[in-house]
Design a protein around this nucleic acid. Structure first.
Lengths: 230, 230
DNA sequence: TCTTGTTAGATTGTCGACAATCTGATTGTC
DNA sequence: GACAATCAGATTGTCGACAATCTAACAAGA
């Protein structure tokens, strides 16, 4: 008897699709921070009623990328330098923990998946597809969380990553430069395959440091010149 | 001119009240793990329509204490020993981080608040009010998170605490014993007031350890004899 | 001129009804 | 009797309309 593995079938509710659409629009920067989401207009554009749209928005509010004020509206969260700094410092701690938990569980499948995701980043870089580059880089980084076998940790990471992805997308969009050509993940992958856990943890911390420094300076520059809002 | 400070007025939507009602029912164990929430029945009991109820349930799903299966229903999450273990080990890491961040920011107001919350726990203990004892103990423990001045960390803690409160309530409910009379938080409070940060971190880790061990053995005993479901 | 009261328009919150889907029992067939 | 097809009931998902609330413009009065 062949042992076939079936993945869960897709959610077939409008609500789930709306969540996916909105999330993507926010995380890619199509919807700007602070922007108000008009329920009537969006529901007409999507050809759905307001009920599933509102339920979807509730989910994204709890997910932390929308914020809601009763009778006033629902808005894309604002990005402050402090938010980025907070997320960043927590991320350092979680990374260390995730690596520690994952370390003894690394096996052939782990290394294969590591290579696969690393390759995806390199491909996106070659294609000059910044959005996919950000997504795939976070996917690569998320492997240690998936492998740590701790559902609460994984959830926490995914909430964090929503914001980070948004920050990175805005950053990329703003500076509008060609993506870095060199492969900044080479060392990270190599150390995760090695035998020195401390070294891997240290590198993760410093490596992330680098990316965040750019983000922070960008966010600070935004706050120098506060926008008038949408 | 007197400078009066006003706190934001309460949310006046039905949705917000429903969220509060449901959350309380779940976290105090009135609604059992795995139990299905019938939308029609609950909406009739609360005298509201299903729309705000469903939106409230979406929020609690994202909060991690409900789980939803399309066209099947929304259920209170199941509590497995692994979940508790996962939450527990993450909590240790976060505690350490929270103490580290809070340490340099401790001031008079911090110590006063610490005493106030400690007193609340002792009062609930004297009153033999187990529900309030759990709540106030978690409040005491949460002070280091509120003081760490990291919004992402605080959010993470609050998500974690929802589950922990549920676990503790179920545990208390199950063993049905009088609450411990001795004051297990005395040392914790004293160390947070002291000068040895490492000692405080170490104690937090071990102190939590104790509580969790009880929880874990309880959860494991449940899994030995799986319930038939509601 | 500044403040306060009013009003119209737009938007969010809530409701009741209908459509889509699931579950379990029943029926019919081999 | 075992099994598949069908059907009724219950429940969730979605819709369109109405109620409650907010915002901004305007008018009235000190």
């Amino acid at each position: 008897m062949v042992k076939t593995e079936f993945s869960p079938i897709a959610d077939t509710t409008r609500r789930a699709e709306i969540v996916a659409l909105l999330r993507r629009a926010i995380l890619t920067g199509q919807l700007e921070p602070g922007q108000k989401l008009n329920e009537l207009r969006i529901s007409e554009q999507m050809r759905v009623s307001r009920a599933p749209l509102r339920e979807a928005m509730r989910e994204l509010v709890q997910e932390g990328i929308l914020t809601s004020i009763p009778y006033a509206g629902t808005f894309v969260i604002d990005v402050t330098a402090k938010d980025i700094d907070d997320a960043y410092s927590l991320n350092k701690v979680l990374d260390e923990f995730a690596i520690e938990q994952t370390w003894p569980q690394r096996d052939r499948r782990f290394f294969d998946e590591l290579d696969r995701r690393h390759e995806a980043v390199k491909q996106a870089t070659r294609d000059l597809d910044t959005t996919r580059q950000i997504e795939s880089a976070l996917q690569l980084h998320g492997l240690i969380y998936e492998w740590a076998d701790n559902s609460v940790l994984l959830e926490t990471w995914q909430r964090l990553i929503s914001r980070l992805q948004m920050y990175f997308a805005l950053h990329q969009q703003a500076r509008n430069e060609p993506v870095p050509a060199e492969d900044v993940h080479e060392t990270y992958v190599r150390l995760l395959k090695g035998t020195d856990m401390r070294a891997a943890q240290r590198h993760a911390r410093e490596h992330i440091n680098l990316d965040f420094e750019q983000l922070l300076s960008y966010a600070r520059s935004l706050e120098q010149r506060p926008s008038k809002g949408a």
